[in-house]
Every structure is written in structure tokens, then in C-alpha cells.
């Protein structure tokens, strides 16, 4: 961003450069949302809430990647960003398992591997990838809002086919070889693989204040977490949501796991798309 504005400032005097800048900005705007779907404004029902917190939380519209990021896509990122290559990454930002399923810094493996979701990436790496794409990670609330959508209706909880599919995945062992992204059916908003492929990082995975293990919610954990003792779960029926919450609360940002990947999100552009609006600067 800094480099960009410096460049723009330098070339600002030339009209030709101004036009070029405008053109490339429009290109960026198009490329920026490729493969993303708009999730309309909706609500999220928190799993845990304080007695005086609302039962539902409004979630503004946002954009979400249609599918998790693949090995092939992640390869482009590490090509462009040396510091995120397997041999270069700092331990603070990724544990030793980082991209452990790759054969080398720039070798994700077979041709099929390119289409599979990238896993064994830390939260820091996922976050850096998203920033490189001009995107961000979805918040937990956004992710859960999108994941609650059914295949044919907005409320997945009232879509028996959706529920069956979801429960089947969460109750089955993970396959040794992951299928390619988009193998599963899209939900109502055209988003694939929110259930049935990999677990996914969220921007605020570390917002969870209970541990996955119920025994952890007593004793020392009450000492550790301010306010945790006051939390209560209003709806205990959405078991997979509790599993996700449990997983998130057990993660550290540098962890890399064999079935943990991510996808990107972005703020939804405001109502009319910025089609022909010209840059404000002369």
C-alpha cells in the first residue's frame, strides 16, 4: 500500500500514467472478487452468550471464497513471497509441520494436489495469504453464518439433507488423501465445502474462551478466563458447531494441522458496484 501510493504520487503528473492507474485499479477490482460469493446480511446465534447479551447477532453482507484455498493457489503465494516458503518461514509464525505434505519449497506434489485444499498452514500464513490477495480471513461469526446456510434454503437447520451431510462428515474419520475443492455441492449462496472437506481458520479463532474439553471449563480455566464462568449455551443441538468451537479454542496461531485449511473473505462492496466512477484525484 505504501509503495503503491508512492508510485502513484510520482506518476501523478502524467495523464497517461493516471489512465493506466485507473485501468489497473479497475482490473484489480475485478480480479479482487474472483471466485467469491456474496453472503447476504443475516443473523448468527452465538453458541455461548452472557445472560444480557442478545440471542442473535446481525451479520452484515460480506464476500466469501467459493472454496477453500488450494495447494495450487498457495504455491503462487509462496512463489511471490519468499519468506512464506517452507524453508524460510520463521518458527514464531508457523510450527515445523508447515506445508509438511509438500515435497519442497515450491513442490506441492502431484498434478492432482494442486486442486486439493492447502492444509498444514498456520493462522499467520493464512492471514498473510489473504492480505496478499487483497482479502482477509472471515471472522468466526461470518464463517458460522455462511456455514449455517442449507443447500436449498437459508436455514440449514431446517434442511434435513444438509444436516445429514454435515453430521456424516463430522462423524467420519478424515480420508488420507483429501478430495479436490468443489467436490461437494454448493450451498444456497454458491459456496462449496464449508462442511465435508477441511477445518478452516478464522480471523478471530482466538475469541473462543472455553476449551473443547468440558473438564477444562472448571478450576484453572475459570482463573484463566475472565467471564468464562458466566457463559451459557442457549442451543446445544448444533453439535458440529460445538466441535468447531472446541477445535478453535484448542489452536495456537502457529499450529499447522493435516486437516486445517482456510478460505478468504472480504467486505461486501456497497450496493451499486463501483462501475464507472472515476478516481477523485485529477
Amino acid at each position: 500500500m505504501r509503495a503503491w501510493s508512492t508510485w502513484a504520487g510520482r506518476s501523478g503528473r502524467s495523464t497517461a500514467a493516471g489512465v493506466a492507474l485507473f485501468l489497473s485499479l479497475s482490473l484489480l477490482a475485478v480480479a479482487g472478487t474472483e471466485g467469491m460469493r456474496r453472503i447476504p446480511a443475516g443473523v448468527y446465534r452465538p453458541l455461548f452468550r452472557l445472560p444480557d447479551e442478545p440471542r442473535e447477532e446481525a451479520v452484515p453482507a460480506f464476500l466469501l471464497d467459493e472454496a477453500p484455498v488450494t495447494n495450487g493457489e498457495f504455491l503462487e503465494f509462496v512463489r511471490a513471497n519468499r519468506r512464506w516458503r517452507r524453508s524460510q518461514v520463521r518458527r514464531l509464525f508457523a510450527d515445523p509441520g508447515y506445508l509438511g505434505h509438500w515435497q519442497g519449497d515450491l513442490e506441492p506434489g502431484s498434478a492432482e494436489a494442486a486442486g486439493r485444499p492447502v492444509v498444514q498452514v498456520s493462522w499467520f500464513a493464512a492471514k498473510a495469504y489473504a492480505a496478499w490477495k487483497g482479502r482477509r480471513l472471515p471472522t468466526t461469526v461470518e464463517w458460522e453464518r455462511a456455514a449455517a446456510v442449507g443447500l436449498t434454503r437459508e436455514e440449514g437447520a431446517r434442511d434435513p439433507d444438509h444436516l445429514r451431510t454435515v453430521l456424516r462428515w463430522y462423524s467420519s474419520p478424515m480420508p488420507a488423501l483429501l478430495p479436490a475443492v468443489r467436490s461437494g455441492p454448493p450451498n444456497l449462496h454458491g459456496v462449496h465445502d464449508l462442511h465435508g472437506l477441511v477445518w478452516e481458520w478464522t480471523q478471530d479463532f482466538n475469541a473462543a474462551l472455553v476449551t473443547g474439553d468440558a473438564r477444562g471449563d472448571t478450576g484453572i480455566e475459570r482463573q484463566l478466563f475472565c467471564g468464562a464462568g458466566a457463559q451459557s449455551a442457549p442451543d446445544r443441538s448444533d453439535f458440529p458447531a460445538f466441535m468447531r468451537s472446541g477445535l478453535r479454542s484448542s489452536l495456537k496461531a502457529a499450529y499447522t494441522l493435516p486437516h486445517l485449511g482456510f478460505r478468504c473473505a472480504a467486505d461486501a462492496p456497497s450496493a451499486p458496484p463501483p462501475s464507472a466512477s472515476s478516481p477523485s484525484k485529477p
Binding site: 475469541a207 473462543a208 474462551l209 484463566l224 475472565c226
Partner: peptide, 18 residues
């Protein structure tokens, strides 16, 4: 995330945190 501190903002603008 680096320090292993979990936190979230509650409905009253307070932060529950490690």
C-alpha cells in the same frame, strides 16, 4: 495470538480475555 491470549468483546463493550 502470539501470546496465546484469547479474547472476545461481549455485548456490553467489555472484553472477556485470558
Amino acid at each position: 495470538a502470539l501470546l496465546g491470549v484469547n479474547y472476545r468483546k461481549d455485548g456490553r463493550g467489555q472484553f472477556a480475555h485470558s
